[in-house]
Simulated assay, not measured.
Amino acid sequence: MHKPALPQEGNDTFQDQIRIVLVETSHSGNIGAVARAMKNMGLGNLWLVNPTSFPDETSYARSSGASDVLDNAQVVSSLDEAITDCVLVMGTSARGRKVPWPVIAPPDAARKASEHAPAGPVALVFGRENHGLSNEELQRCHFHIHIPSNPDYSSLNLAMAVQVVCYELRMNYLRGLEGGEGSPYLKAMTAPGDAGWDVPPAPVNDVEGFFSHLEQVLVDIDFHRRENPRQLMTRLRRLFQRARLDQMEINILRGILTAVQKSSTGKAPTGNASEADEAATGQE
C-alpha cells in the first residue's frame, strides 16, 4: 500500500497549465521523486511518455506523500501525445548543438511559462536518465532550458533537474500574487518592525538608556574609564546598533546589567535600571 496523499496547496490556473513531461523514464523511483519535487513547489500536472515501469510501489514510496500527483499522472506512448495541445514547449538540455537553438536559463523559462500559460498548456520536457532528450525531441521544443551546473560535474539527477525548474516556476508565481505586490513568503523578516516580528523595535530613548546603563556597569567593574574612554563605547554602540534591538531585548540586556551591578556592588540599582529589570522578568 502506498502512502496517502498529503493535502494539495490548492488549484490555480497557472499551476494547472504547467505540464511536467518525463520521457522514457527508466527508474520508477525517479518518477516518485519528481512527483515529490513538483508537489513541494505547488505543481501537480505530470505526464509520462512511455515509462519503463509505472505505476508501482517504488514510485509511490519515493513520492513521500505526493501520491495524488502520481494518481493523476497521464501516461502516453509518445512525446507528440504529451505536447500536441501545448502553446509552448521547453526541453532541458545540457549539450551544445551544431545548429544553435534558443537557450534560456530556468528563471527565464519560468517567466515565459507564466506569460504563455493563460493561452494554454505549457510543457516542460525532461529526458531519459542516461542520455536526456534526443535531437529530434529537442527540435520539437521552442526553447532549450540549460541549468548552469558545475561544468566539471554537470550531470543532474532527473528529480534534481525538475526541482530546479519547478522552484523557479514557484518563485515566479509567488512574485505575481496579491496584485503584483508578491507573496508574503518572499518578504524578508530580519529585524524588529518587519511583518511577523513578535516585539516592536526599541525606541531611541530606550536604546540610549541601555547605553548609559552599559557604560555605568563597565565603569563599576573597572572595565571602562570615562576619563580615558578610547573607542570602547563607540564600538559597543556600533555593535548593538547593528543588531537593531527590539523592546524585549533591551529589557533583557538591562536586566543582565542590573544583575551584574548587584553582584559587583552588593546593592540593587534604583530608577530606570531596576524598572528595566522588572520589565525583563515580566516579559520572559
Rank of each mutant, 00 (worst) to 15 (best):
A66F: 01
V207S: 08
M160I: 06
R175Q: 15
H146I: 00
N40E: 04
E24H: 06
L6N: 06
M38P: 01
A82K: 08
V99L: 09
A159L: 05
V207N: 10
F143G: 04
D222A: 06
G120L: 02
W197E: 04
E249Q: 15
R230Q: 14
E208H: 10
P102M: 06
Y60S: 05
G176F: 03
A259W: 06
N172L: 00
L138F: 00
S134A: 12
I83P: 04
G65M: 02
F126S: 07
G209K: 11
S212Q: 13
A82D: 07
N172H: 13
T234R: 14
Y185P: 00
R170T: 00
K39N: 09
P118G: 05
K262F: 08
W197M: 13
T270F: 04
A279I: 01
G209C: 10
R111T: 13
N130A: 15
H116T: 02
G271T: 05
A159T: 04
Q139W: 03
I252G: 00
W101Y: 11
W197D: 05
Y167V: 00
L239H: 11
K112A: 12
E57Y: 07
W47E: 08
E168H: 14
I31M: 10
A37C: 07
E81S: 10
V217R: 00
V122E: 01
V217E: 02
R36C: 05
